[in-house]
Simulated scan of single mutants.
Amino acid sequence: MTDNHRTTAKQKSQSQRVAMSWDTQNVYLNQDQAEFLLAFAKSQGRLEPPKIYYNSQHKNQVNDKNRLEKLGCIGVDVRDSAKNSLDKQLVFDCSKRFAIKPSPDLIILVLGDRDFAGLITFLKALRITVIVFARRKSASKKLINLVGEDNFHDVDELSSLCAGLKP
């Protein structure tokens, strides 16, 4: 007797809900890298519009936000100039998003500092899969250890990671 309710990996991927939050102050991606990142995120399941966190008081961040909004991202302006204010807003928004049901099954975080260790621990306690993209040379070792080597990716290797995916 066959189990008609069994799902394949592809079916699971298609039904899995995916969220993405991106700290543009810590991780800049050129156009090709951004397109590969979004292709990767879409390959993981149904991607909610990715949120990109920026400070409009910095012209370069506004330029990045404008470029990324053309790719379907939603900009979240954190105009507070206090230390780590953007990080705190991202953590607050993610915590709020994942505290309600239904919540995504997977989150992709584009960041690099250890300010997010508490968020990652919280998400993992909720049994949410966490994938982090950052620059390995500047990423916190604690951050890498929290998500594990399999769920940590260097943004400089996006093109090879996404070989075969259509950006």
Rank of each mutant, 00 (worst) to 15 (best):
N63K: 15
I107R: 07
S21Q: 14
L86W: 01
C94Q: 10
R67I: 03
K70T: 05
S81Q: 15
I52V: 15
E48A: 05
Q89V: 13
E69Y: 01
L68W: 04
A41H: 11
T24A: 11
S103Y: 05
K96H: 08
R46T: 08
A41F: 06
E48C: 13
K65Y: 06
L90D: 00
I100R: 04
L68Q: 00
P104V: 14
K42T: 00
Q57W: 10
D64F: 05
A82E: 05
Q57A: 13
N55C: 07
D32L: 12
F98Y: 15
G72Q: 03
D87M: 05
Q44C: 12
S103F: 15
D80P: 03
D87P: 13
I52P: 00
K96Q: 07
N55W: 10
P104A: 06
F40A: 02
Q89K: 07
Q89G: 10
H58N: 12
S103A: 08
V27G: 11
V78R: 00
Y28M: 10
N63A: 09
S21T: 10
K59T: 03
K83M: 12
C94N: 15
K59R: 06
G72N: 03
C73G: 01
L90I: 03
H58W: 11
K83V: 11
D93L: 15
Q44H: 01
L38N: 03
K42Y: 02
L109D: 09
A82D: 09
N66C: 02
L68Y: 01
N60I: 05
S95H: 07
V27K: 05
A39L: 12
N66F: 12
I74F: 03
E35Q: 08
V76W: 02
